[in-house]
Structure formats: structure tokens, C-alpha cells
Design a protein around this nucleic acid. Sequence first.
DNA 1: CTGGGGACGGGGCCC
DNA 2: TGGGCCCCGTCCCCA
Length: 262
Amino acid sequence: MPRSFLVKKYFAKQKPNYSELECQNAHTAPFMLKESYPFAELPSAAAAAATCLTTGLVWDLSVLPTLYLPTSQAEATSIPGPLDLSSPSSLSSSASSCGEEDEGRTSDPPSPEPVHTFAPRQRMKCTGVLAHSGPPEEEEEREPPAAAARPAFLCKHCPKEYTSLGALKMHIRSHTLPCVCTTCGKAFSRPWLLRGHIRTHTGERPFSCPHCNRAFADRSNLRAHLQTHAEVKKYQCGICSRTFSRMSLLQKHSSSGCCSAA
DNA sequence: CTGGGGACGGGGCCC
DNA sequence: TGGGCCCCGTCCCCA
């Protein structure tokens, strides 16, 4: 099942967040997007391109050591410490605003800050296995005191807890994995995950790059790919100012010595 | 070693 | 309340 049908909602929901994708390459004419996005037409691409250029929106790894510098997945899920979890908005909005495209989604205005603190959403990775190295304080700490009064819905499969039953049920699907690929039998927690997986079998690639016409099966991969076209990439080394298309590359750069400064 | 692509997961928002 | 959809992000692998 192509995910292409999903993107039609861009029209209705005013969430053509690919403005970001394009605006990272503001030189691209909007019509190119239309041509290359037969599925996802970008109604306001031109306007978006004019307003959301992200040249300044780069991540600064120099702030990582003081906040959060995951070196492993386990670490990422077990470090509640210096991470600024007390401010959920700082988590999502900073990360998303850095993603530049989030305007339509979070209503966060495009962040004027050229540098974003790195506080990525934590990987849960508790699918079927108690991958949590510690109690789920992360979520609790992330919640402001006001939310602490909310009832907690505990997952019976793992230590996670949620403030709403819906969220818990959604989470439980990551344990039950009800969506099974009929081709290979691989199971997924959500239908759209399965659909994306099915594309690996069908070879369907509904997301194409407006710059090189390369197509992708996954929207996130297209997003990452578009970074490669951007002159100024999202993730910047705070020491040498070098920019990278991915956080992982920036982390590698930093951990490998970063101009012999680290 | 670096850069990039493929595949995938989780939370949040909207309907 | 539940499902659909999106975004952000990570891990793995390869060139």
C-alpha cells in the first residue's frame, strides 16, 4: 500500500512541511517540487520557501557535552541526568524547529536561534524486551509538576507509564506488534510502519528529491537526503563550525577529535 | 573515516 | 477514544 495517499492531506491540513525540505535549498523553484512530488503537492511551497530558509538553523554540538551526548542506545535511554527533561517544549520544539518545518505542526514559530541545544527525544526501544535500564523517570521528569497529578497508565510489559490510556494502548502495540507483513512475516506496531516496510518488497518509492530526482520509499529518508543538498546543514560542530547532514555524523566528528580539539 | 541511504520506531497531533 | 498521519530520530550498512 503506497504511502503516497497519505500526503494528500497536505492540502487539507496545511502541513506541507516539506517547505523545510525545499527551503533548505531555497534556490529550488517551487515548480520543481510539484513536478517531483506527484503525490505530495506542495501548495504553499513557494511561500514557505520564502520564509523558512534554515541557513542559520544548525545544531551546535558544542552544547552536547553539557546536555546529552548519547554514545549508545542504552545510554540514551538511561541518562535522565543533565538532559533538560523538565521542559518538554524544549525537547520537541527545539528539535523540531531545528527541523525547520514544524511550523504547521507544533505552531512553534521558526526559531530565530541559530543554534539549538541537543535534547533528542529518547529512544524507547522496549519492544518486547525490557530494554529500559532504569525506571521510566524520564517521562515523569519530563512532565511538569502540574502533569504529575495526572493518573498514570502503566504498561504491563515494560516499566513505561503514560498519562493517557490512548498513549498506553499505542505503546502496547509496540509489544504486541499486530501488523504482520504477509510477505516476510515481520511484525510491526502500526499499520503505516507495515506499509513502509512493504515498500521494501515492492520497491515503491513515492518520495522523490526535487533536486536529483532520486526517489525514496521513506519520507524521513528523503528529508535526510535533502540535507545533502543543503549548503548549510543542520548539525554544526561548535568547535570548527563544520556542518553535517546528520546528528550521527556530527557525533562521529566530535568523538573522533573534532579538529583535534576534543 | 566520512557521507549517505535503507529501514524502522515512538510520540504527538488531528480527525 | 482510536486510528491515521507526520515528524524526529536512530541504527545499520555500504560506498
